[in-house]
């Protein structure tokens, strides 16, 4: 589904990704861990098409298409979704209005009929129930004044509605209490149908108890320096990154 080869990217003239390789097959869950500043969010943003990051080398294929040539919205239409580490607040736009606008834009691009208000509300209701979101968050302006955890849950609500083929969760677990963590995991697992894939960027093992990864990778200085199964995450939590950094000291 996703094939990243030798990806290099920089921001403000500074190289952040230095030859990243990753292959995600349909239905798989991949966890990416790594120390602060190693390039995890940069990688996620490059996949979603953020223009601030300049790709200087390498390729990214998504379902056989060259992802790097696509605009951010085209990537969303193709089925990529990034749950942001720091979702933006947009005062002046109702959360529900935005959800409908996004869903209908994607439906339209995919040749599906746009949903009218009543049909949309029905779909939204189901997802809201699944994620146990409070109603007032739907009425408020998009993310404005939401707590850290509420923002993260709202990202997952968007994901549940847009039903992406590849969901990238960038530290969605940070700042979630244990109940919220389970709810978010349920949301992600509800999406999994054997064909959809997930990349989970996290610092902690605990989310991976609920969303069990098929593969775990360590990103260090813009490269994947170690890959393993779900045990690797446990090992990292126990030992930290020191032992990897040592083995990679130039």
């Amino acid at each position: 589904m996703l094939k990243v080869s030798n990806l290099q990217a920089r921001v403000d003239g500074k190289m952040i990704l230095n030859g990243l390789d990753l292959e995600v097959k349909a239905g798989e869950v991949h966890a990416i861990m790594g120390p602060n500043g190693s390039g995890k969010s940069t990688f996620a943003n490059v996949l979603a098409g953020h223009e601030a990051f300049e790709v200087t080398g390498g390729t990214v294929e998504f379902e056989g298409k060259n992802l790097l040539e696509m605009e951010p919205e085209e990537r969303a239409w193709a089925g990529i979704f990034l749950a942001f580490q720091y979702p933006v607040e947009i005062p002046g736009v109702g959360n529900t209005y935005f959800l409908r606008m996004a869903l209908n834009a994607i439906r339209k691009a995919r040749g599906q009929e746009e949903l009218d208000s009543v049909a949309f509300m029905k779909v939204l209701r189901e997802k809201v129930k699944l994620l146990k979101l409070r109603d007032d968050l739907l009425k408020r302006p998009l993310n404005e004044g939401f707590s850290g955890g509420e923002k993260k849950r709202n990202e997952i609500l968007q994901m549940a509605l847009l039903e992406p083929k590849l969901a990238i969760l960038d530290e969605t677990d940070s700042g979630l209490d244990i109940d919220a963590l389970k709810i978010v995991a349920d949301g992600v697992n509800a999406l999994r149908d054997g064909t959809r894939s997930v990349i989970v960027v996290t610092h902690y093992q605990r989310l991976l108890d609920y969303i069990v990864p098929d593969h775990t990778h360590v990103l260090y200085k813009g490269k994947i320096v170690k890959s393993g199964g779900k045990e690797l995450a446990l090992e990292l939590e126990e030992k930290g990154y020191g032992w990897i950094q040592e083995s990679h000291a130039a």
Binding site: E51, A52, R75, A105, Q158, L162
Partner: peptide, 14 residues
């Protein structure tokens, strides 16, 4: 720009 990217990443055309 961040808000623009956010909206576009959700499929809203530029």
């Amino acid at each position: 720009e961040k808000s623009m990217f956010y909206a576009r990443s959700r499929g809203v055309p530029e």
